[in-house]
Design a protein around this nucleic acid. Structure first.
Lengths: 151, 151
DNA sequence: GGCAAAATGTAGCACATGCTACATATTGTA
DNA sequence: TACAATATGTAGCATGTGCTACATTTTGCC
């Protein structure tokens, strides 16, 4: 193959819609964990004044080591503040993200419940689904909920 | 801390429902990519007789290198057969998975469309959502679709 | 046949996530 | 205060996914 030595290699252009969708999904996945963490930190702060590494580990179902490393990344990205051996707190940016996630989570759960899905299954599915719900789809869920309530 | 030298360390037991849900989500994520690949391979086989690495790369929006390594894993796990410089084919197991995914994908898209979501957004969201839809939720989607159709 | 383009393969890097094992700091309490 | 339990931190490994750069094979065509 002629390696076309001039062009540094143009990025693969996915022509298909599916490629675009999958790339979107991959991007979302990168932020899913951040969302889960800030949401958990917000909950814990509310419930017991502060969030500790152990609490997060228990809550998220991972070891404290994983929590620790992920917190370093969240701190790097400006979502939390943390000092060694101290509690973890959300930054303004972290709070904003947490609020968004909590509202979205609640909406998704309510929506699934309104379809007749049992509490536990709704919770489990919502955890997986919520990160992939676009603004448009979330709005559609809310519309549906209003209709269902009005009835 | 007393290291309790006898017990090899019992796995962290997540007491909270959220921990369980998140672990479920992580398990699902491990199989998402396999699902995307077998689905693409099935489509390509139908459309042009066989699936090649380049086709998959274009379709999935990644480089051929990534396709290559992922195919090795899929082969290891029994979903595809592949020989160097040859086309890729699904095993019986791969076909079964592809069928399931295609049906589920179609259901999720139809469902989102029935909520008034535009074609493109429905496709994009479906790619992210479909992997996290439990049997129960999928059934609820189908129920909803039947109701909407009947009307 | 033989050359060039296309396709495929391989090496090696980066990053994210998970883990176990072990080290260190903090804390509760005798 | 001092010890033991708890919490937190660090080192190092595995796996999965993505990439670029380069090597090799296959294929189309003169």
């Amino acid at each position: 193959m002629q390696p076309s030595p001039r062009h540094p290699k143009k990025p693969v252009r996915p022509s298909a819609l599916q490629a675009e969708s999958l790339q979107q999904t991959r991007r979302e996945h990168a932020s899913e964990i951040a969302e889960d963490y800030v949401e958990a930190i917000a909950d814990l702060a509310l419930a017991q004044g502060e969030a500790r590494v152990v609490d997060l580990a228990r809550r998220l179902g991972v070891t404290h080591v994983t929590v620790n490393r992920t917190l370093a990344r969240l701190q790097r990205d400006g979502y939390v503040t943390a000092r060694p051996y101290r509690a973890i707190f959300l930054t303004a940016q972290g709070h904003a993200l947490a609020d968004t996630c909590q509202r979205r989570h609640a909406t998704v759960v309510s929506f699934l419940r309104s379809l007749g899905i049992a509490e536990k299954a709704a919770e489990i599915d919502a955890e997986g689904i919520e990160h992939h719900v676009s603004t448009e789809t979330l709005a559609a869920f809310e519309r549906h909920l209003r209709r269902a309530t009005r009835r």
